[in-house]
Write a protein that binds this DNA or RNA. Sequence first.
DNA 1: ATATAATTCTGAACATCGTTCATTAAAAGG
DNA 2: CCTTTTAATGAACGATGTTCAGAATTATAT
Lengths: 194, 194
Amino acid sequence: MARRKDHTPDELRALIVQAARALVAQKGGAALTARALAARIGYAPGTIYNLFPDMDAVLLAVHGATLAGLQDELAAAVAATPADFSRIQALAQAYCAFAERHAPLWLAMFATPHRGRLPRWYRARLQSLFSLLEAELHACLKLGPAESRRTTRLLWAALHGITMLTLDGRLQAIGKSEARALVEALLAPYRPHG
Amino acid sequence: MARRKDHTPDELRALIVQAARALVAQKGGAALTARALAARIGYAPGTIYNLFPDMDAVLLAVHGATLAGLQDELAAAVAATPADFSRIQALAQAYCAFAERHAPLWLAMFATPHRGRLPRWYRARLQSLFSLLEAELHACLKLGPAESRRTTRLLWAALHGITMLTLDGRLQAIGKSEARALVEALLAPYRPHG
DNA sequence: ATATAATTCTGAACATCGTTCATTAAAAGG
DNA sequence: CCTTTTAATGAACGATGTTCAGAATTATAT
């Protein structure tokens, strides 16, 4: 039995990613199994493999959507703040808020180390995100190009650490309210003097 | 067939953890399967379950050993440096060096989010590590109690982030040499003025 | 219209995983 | 020597990712 529903390959691909995203968001990354996903979209498990090489690729597509969502919110934060230190604060808080609001999706993104290198479209997404932050740091903190590059990586990594330790409660669980204070303290050295 | 080799339960427990540790260190966390572990110690898979409730418990014991190893090296760093800012630098570099040197073990420690709360002995291990750092920060940086508590968490989380992003190459891969520069930049604001 | 080709979906099958447990072998005790 | 206790087994169960020969449907050609 074939063609039970008329979905173009692209539509079906999008349907799979959407269902996978919902599954991870609701029940965590471990709940994303081929059979559960197939049941959710009303297809047989094998159908997924006609559109994705394996389940890792499905999960990576979910992560891509998560990164896109973060980028949208960071862009909104840029648009809503003046081009000074307060924008950097807003970006950092938006990052933390997004990760907290989509905790299962965010945790799933870092749960399993990827074997092999990430596909180009995924690296491009990351690069795009990174460039956005770097541009804002350069503009708002008046750093030199080399310094803003390093500072971006430092703040990015530090934010990642704060967020992860907050979310999964590992290593001396950090309360959610304390996370904001930590981000403040992280950025404090970069605040213009006065 | 029973009692083929004479191991007390404690010896066998230690043997299992040791073999599991070697397995993770050599082939990564995903290679730690009940059957592979059993084969490595010359027992049947079921034997593992006589000594551990499940494989997660074995993995957690491995992580406990990893944390103990880190604590030893941090203590050595304390003993080898004067009680000033340079000691904080040495601690941070020791942390990064340990994670890098035991990359598979370190990555495995953060690969899967733990369901439920961690056992008490594990939380005590973490607390012990954290207390060591907090005491040194308090002593070497002349911070108040509340401030040293927050600063410890901040630096801990930031170090975690730098280390993780360096090791698994995710998110704008940070080169190993660049990681040291990032740690330097992270600590720079706390360097005594001059 | 009819036949043929191309597409698309199925679901049984395979290997491997964690885990359980009735069974069996070995040691200890009477 | 017999009995009890302990320790180890390995077959078995359910669930996993993945494959693929075949079935069902649509498109195309004659």
